[in-house]
């Protein structure tokens, strides 16, 4: 028997698969970025479905709002005219597809033998009692404080690296 959540998930699964296929097959990179925008909205919807409200907001603000706009800015600076006339795929594309099929075979066996582990302490009721973002923040700033600081270092290196790479040579 198919229930309403399963229908909801089925819509999201089909839409996300089609959108990601459109992302990798679109001829114009601008179209590709816009399909990816629609895909990110669907992913945010799926996060809401999985009770991850904070991550849904982060997905929209950071991925759709910041990273994709960065991609669009770079396309604006580059020339995409010859992309529309030229070929889309490399000469050895069947090798790539064969590699994808072999990865599919490798991934299939663990998924088909999946056994769910023991459940933790953050049940839906426990999270609802003190909101998703509060629980997330407490775990992030106590148990994962050191990785959080390392992440700030990664961002610093990205800032410096991007400036050094994109600077015009004197």
């Amino acid at each position: 028997m198919i229930t309403v959540p399963q229908l909801f998930f089925a819509y999201f699964a089909v839409a996300m698969t089609v959108l990601s296929l459109l992302v990798i097959t679109a001829k114009n990179p601008v179209n590709s970025v816009l399909w990816m925008l629609a895909l990110f909205f669907h992913i945010a919807g799926l996060y809401l479905f999985l009770n991850a409200e904070f991550l849904a907001a982060v997905q929209l603000i950071l991925y759709a709002g910041a990273i994709l706009v960065l991609f669009l800015f770079v396309i604006m600076m580059l020339n995409v005219k010859d992309e529309i006339i030229g070929k889309r795929f490399i000469k050895g594309w069947p090798v790539g597809i064969a590699l994808v099929m072999s990865i599919l075979a490798v991934i299939y066996f663990p998924i088909s033998r999946l056994i769910q582990g023991p459940a933790g302490q953050y049940t839906i009721e426990a999270i609802r009692a003190e909101t998703n973002s509060k629980v997330l923040g407490r775990v992030l700033y106590t148990d994962y404080l050191f990785p959080f600081e390392v992440a700030s270092l990664i961002l610093l290196i990205a800032i410096v690296g991007a400036m050094v790479l994109a600077k015009r040579r004197a």
Partner: peptide, 30 residues
């Protein structure tokens, strides 16, 4: 699994993805 660690990892992955996009786009521009 009723555990918050998965969502914490997602936050770190988004951080690394932002850094990777910035560096990758700088490489493409140059």
């Amino acid at each position: 699994l009723q555990d918050m660690r998965g969502q914490i990892f997602v936050i770190f992955i988004i951080t690394v993805a932002a850094a990777e996009a910035a560096i990758g786009l700088a490489i493409i521009v140059s």
